[in-house]
Amino acid sequence: MGETIEKLKWLLTDKYSNKRVEEEIRDKEDLLSSGISTCLGCGSEIGLRIALKVLGRNTILAIPPGCMGGVGVVGYGTTTGTEVPVFFPLLDNIASMLSGIKRYYRRLGRKVHVLAYAGDGGTADVGFQCLSGAAERDENIIYICYDNEGYMNTGIQRSGTTPYKAWTTTTPVGEARRGKPQVNKNMPLIMAMHEIPYTATASIAYIEDYVSKLKKAAEVEDGLAYIHLFSPCPTGWRFSTDKTIEVARLAVETNFFPLWEARYGEIRFTKKIWFKKPVKEYLKAVGKYSHLTDEEINEIQKLVDDRYRMLKSLAR
């Protein structure tokens, strides 16, 4: 009897759904070198490893300057960190360079996935104009932004997607200032409003959801597919290295980072949260918010609620 209850409890956990996706991806070839020097518990490494497993060998990868470039995915000299061709575009021409590559292959008559794996700096700040242009021109590329909410590779500076009140080295916490005074860009929604064929948000805690979105992005043939991947960073966000997945899960469960997808601008939620948690639980788990007072937490709760309401009013 006790054993049956134990088993039932086990079946009901969220984590059990991992089994399905695990069976799907475990035998796929791992195209990313295991020995790249990401920090312990890096979320972006999980994201890239799974993306390459799903998209397979027929992929051309662009990694702009950022964490993934710095840790050796692009490699040095004659070495590379992946088993697919990999490029090192500049921060401000990622999407335009890939557009050219895609057009070249289309002319040759070969079907390849052209993939960008760029950080939030290269996407929301520096590389934004060329990404927006490529989206408008309907260039057929897959663009994944791994959002670790700052320029982590150069020493944790603020970026356009660093959230309100978050600590970084350029938005310090002291008497005059308490973290970032501005609200972050709503980058995935900006991309959805380009009305491109496919836009999605994904989180490394929900791999099944992420894999299905990758597959949909790979099927797009008439324009740009954009995935905004929430990728916690233990070093820059100040939490212990084993909590990466837990933090990512909390962000979804508190509606801080809702999961949705959009086809030609039409939004649909992909993960329904039945028991919404207060944002406080997420903020308490992350060290970069440890200075927040109750008042400031309420302020953030209101911002999160407002954003979620706006998203809901846009969704089907």
Binding site: S33, G35, I36, G75, T79, T80, G81, P85, Y104
Partner: peptide, 19 residues
Amino acid sequence: EWIAPIGKDRYIIKTGEWR
């Protein structure tokens, strides 16, 4: 066949030594 290079060798650091 390719306009992008595939590396001759894998880039590998013995990250197990960090543990």
